[in-house]
Design a protein around this nucleic acid. Structure first.
Length: 463
RNA sequence: GAGGUUGUAGCUCAGUUGGUUAGAGCAUCAGAUUGUGGUUCUGAGGGUCGAGGGUUCGAGACCCUUCAUCCUCCCCA
């Protein structure tokens, strides 16, 4: 069987799908630019050492490694060495510069950090960048998870101001407002989670508590309790956690109650102050017309363990849509420290393009006119009419009208079927009669209405 | 890393306890229709039944191996 196929976990995007994806990307791009973010692109491949050790043990295994090429030309002793290395690679997860020294990028954050460190002397800090590119993971694909997928990030590095947090919240609000997706934006702080771990008397268990708590929406409080016990949290600690996450009220009320509970944990008070400051900046920057809500959500944890301050997550707030988070982010201190540049703080957000696409599809919220391609097709009648059609074609394009001429003078029926399948808005019939009178017949494909008019009338109607 | 699903025409899938020449719909092509698409009608082409082995008089179906695929858990986006 030699049917063509594509690698597991990859996708083709058909013309209609690409248009819809571009609609999302263009919307986001315009907002990023409006907020003063600059575009950045980095290579599909990075040096393997740039990536290894940055995503945890699990992450290292999911990095797509690129085999070195040209090795077959080397000498006999090199072949022996390569064979040895190959055996190590095949026996277990292992990498060696002899076999592979490059890898496909795993996310956009680490390459961004690498870029910042490499260009630290040229960049104007704080550096605001956005980046929309595919990334690759050697994960096992399943529903909604791919080996090649797109990420879309906006980050600010080199500033600890909470204005940045507020601006990124605004970007979320503005973006989803423009895309017509109702959202709830959940915010929290890693500092509150750290304080929570202190309240439990087990500050070193913060990651365990975080991971368990993150599943609250999925497995419920009973499930979380079970997992916390498994992770070695005492019942007294679980009581504390229960007390904290059962706080209710508006954001202001929640933060006030929290500061009572965390009165003896300085890091908790710090987190509370940061959240409340960010929210007040946000109020000043945001537009009253934006829908959706921002909610302090104490059980929000997020898996990534490099966040250190405010964390944020966006979920679609519609009864008709069941979907996990469609965006997330937070503050990370010292990301560039991994590459030797200390003391740079960053904060960023990420948009889940594929999930946003699915949500728009479910809400039926894509703009109508995205579906069609060329606006008008000219029927090819062959002979002298072909040259006439070409002159009409050129004038249409000169006027900025998207047009195409059917390239072969095949049966009329076939050309009309093609136009129909391509969902053309109009068809122009430049035949014998039209050519002799120097007119065109313009047919509206939706209504079937057709009339013979001058080219300039036609152009003004199509514009 | 663990567990499960499904592989039959370009696509979506039927195919009975194993039994003639493996079917349907859609799509394609041709014709009814040489300047009018979506609707009809008629006809045609297109399959090493994922691959390899086994059981059998006989395998698309049963058994083994293998590959691919999708999904669930883990983890993540």
């Amino acid at each position: 069987m030699s049917k063509p196929s594509i690698p597991q976990g990859t996708r083709d995007f058909s013309p209609v799908v690409v248009r819809k994806r571009q609609y999302i990307l263009n919307t986001l791009r315009n907002i990023f630019e409006l907020y003063g973010f600059q575009p950045l692109e980095t290579p599909a491949m990075e040096n393997l050492v740039t990536l290894t050790g940055k995503y945890g043990e699990e992450g290292d295994r999911l990095i797509f490694k690129i085999l070195n090429n040209g090795l077959h030309e080397k000498k006999e002793q090199d072949k022996v060495k390569l064979n040895d290395e190959w055996n190590k690679v095949l026996s277990k997860p292992y990498s060696s510069p002899v076999v592979t020294e490059r890898a496909l990028r795993y996310d956009l954050t680490i390459p961004f950090a690498r870029y910042v460190v490499m260009n630290q002397n040229e960049l104007a800090f704080p550096f605001r960048r956005y980046q929309m590119q595919p990334v690759w993971r050697a994960d096992r694909p399943q529903n909604g998870r791919y080996r090649e997928f797109w990420q879309c990030d906006a980050d600010v590095v080199g500033s600890t101001s909470l204005i940045n947090e507020a601006e990124l919240l605004c970007i979320y609000q503005a973006a989803f407002h423009q895309l017509h997706i109702p959202v709830k934006i959940k915010v929290n702080s890693r500092k509150l989670l750290a304080a929570l771990a202190e309240l439990c008397g087990t500050p070193e268990k913060m990651i365990d508590i975080t991971v368990a708590l993150d599943k609250l929406d999925k497995i419920g409080w009973d499930g979380v309790t079970k997992e916390l016990r498994e992770r070695g949290i005492e019942d007294a600690g679980i009581d504390q956690i229960s007390k904290v996450i059962s706080i209710t009220g508006d954001n202001q009320a929640k933060l006030e109650q929290l500061s009572t509970l965390m009165v003896n944990t300085p890091i908790g008070l710090e987190g509370i102050k940061e959240l409340s400051t960010s929210l007040s900046y946000y109020t000043g920057l945001s537009d009253a017309g934006w829908g959706g809500s921002i909610e302090v959500y104490i059980s929000l944890a997020r898996g990534l363990n490099y966040y250190t301050g405010v964390i944020v997550e966006v979920v679609c707030d519609s009864e008709n849509v069941k979907m996990g988070s469609i965006g997330g982010g937070g503050r990370y201190d010292d990301l560039t420290g991994l590459f030797g540049l200390k003391g740079l703080s960053g904060v960023g957000v990420s948009f889940g393009i594929d999930r946003i696409y699915d949500v728009l599809e479910q809400l039926n919220a894509f703009p109508e006119q995205l579906a069609s391609g060329a606006q008008v097709m000219l029927v090819n009648f062959g002979g002298d009419n072909e040259l006439y059609a070409i002159s009409v074609l050129k004038q249409l394009r000169d006027a900025g009208i998207s047009a195409e001429l059917y390239p072969d003078a095949v049966k009329f029926d076939k050309q009309m079927k093609y136009a129909n399948k391509r969902a053309m808005a109009y068809v122009i019939l430049p035949g014998d009669e039209e050519r002799e009178k120097q007119l065109v017949s313009l047919k509206n494909f939706a209504t079937g209405e057709q009339k013979m008019i001058t080219l300039s009338e036609c152009i003004s109607q199509l514009k």
